Simulated assay, not measured.
Amino acid sequence: MEKVWPAPNVTSEFINAYNFEIFNVASACKSLIKCRPLMLTVIGCYLLSVVISHRAMKSARPMELRSSLLIWNTLLAIMSAIGFIRTFPEPFHIITQQPSGVYKAICTYEFHNYATGFWALISVISKIVELGDTAFIIFRKQKLIFLHWYHHTTVILLTWFGYEAYDPVFRCFVPMNYFIHAWMYTYYALKSQKISVPSVVSMAITATQITQMFVGAGLSIYSLHILMNTNDLCHRPLRNVFLGLFIFGSYFVLFLNYFFHAYFRPSKKTTSKIVKTN
């Protein structure tokens, strides 16, 4: 039986969709399914290019790229801020104003608006665009850690598979991610111009990243409970639940380890202590 995708609302009491945000949900999901091999190829090429370019830069001078970094980080910060403004009203309204709000926000399409679905799709596409973060690290000859490229590749899988199924949990994950990115890219835009930012800011952003991973794992555990132990309807595919549990769980452990080593273990001074993730 062919999957039936929901038809979101154009207008609602918490947010109204603009004309450019109204789109064919089923067509978008089917396009992602059709382009899955291309997505996997992009990930493979990304990993290969990381290895090749990292070796090639060993004998090269580090590049400054200050102007490019300012433009790159500023545009991503603005996009993330707009994405948060457009996606936050829906889960906030459902969780705070509706009975069984957490369940409805995670497992159902009730009160769903086109604006949320559109900016969730933009979020998926942006995960590929943000692979450019790694290029700046390599060309500037900064330290490229495992957490950085592991997060970049796995979050593409997580969001891509999620949108293929039009997973309702996206309405919770996307605004969290946009919120953190708005502050993270603003931080990096300032740092690229050598503007002094208090260390407590970077510490707060990293702590918020860890919180996001904890919440993501928690949503997966809650979804698994609904699917396995109750008779309540949940539109989340079991594959996505297990994938989310594994990926968010691994993020939580890796980010917590990074947080400890960056802020509480004596080490050489670094340019920044925030892991630039997407």
Rank of each mutant, 00 (worst) to 15 (best):
Q212M: 04
M228S: 12
Q212A: 14
F252Q: 12
L238T: 07
F214Q: 08
R239Q: 10
L224E: 08
G218A: 10
M213H: 15
P237C: 06
C234H: 00
A217H: 06
A217N: 04
T208N: 14
L227Y: 00
T230M: 00
D232N: 04
L233K: 07
N231K: 10
N240G: 12
R236C: 06
C234D: 05
D232E: 05
I247W: 13
C234I: 06
G216K: 01
L238E: 06
L224H: 03
L243A: 02
S250W: 14
Q209L: 12
I226W: 02
N240H: 01
S220G: 15
H225Q: 08
A207D: 10
R239K: 13
S220P: 02
F242E: 09
A207R: 05
G218R: 10
L227I: 13
F248C: 00
N229Y: 15
L219H: 12
L243I: 15
F252C: 15
L243F: 13
L243S: 13
N231A: 02
F248N: 15
S223A: 15
N240E: 14
G249K: 11
Q212T: 04
V241P: 02
L245R: 10
T208F: 14
V215T: 12
C234F: 03
H225R: 06
A217R: 00
L233Y: 07
G249F: 06
Y222T: 03
L219F: 02
T211V: 14
Q212L: 12
N229M: 14
L227E: 00
S223V: 00
S223M: 00
L227C: 10
L227N: 00
Y251S: 05
R236S: 06
I226H: 04
T208Y: 12
G218I: 08
F242Q: 09
Y251G: 10
Q212G: 04
F248V: 04
L227T: 03
H225N: 03
S250G: 05
F242N: 07
L243C: 03
N231D: 09
T230Y: 02
F246W: 08
Q212I: 11
N240A: 10
N229G: 00
I247D: 04
M228L: 13
L224Q: 01
L245N: 11
Q209H: 07
L245W: 08
F214G: 14
Q212K: 05
F242P: 08
L233A: 12
F248P: 02
S250R: 13
I221L: 01
N231I: 08
V241Y: 05
Q209A: 08
F214R: 07
G218Y: 04
R236G: 09
S220R: 00
F248E: 15
L224I: 04
F214T: 14
L224S: 04
L245K: 09
I247S: 13
L238R: 11
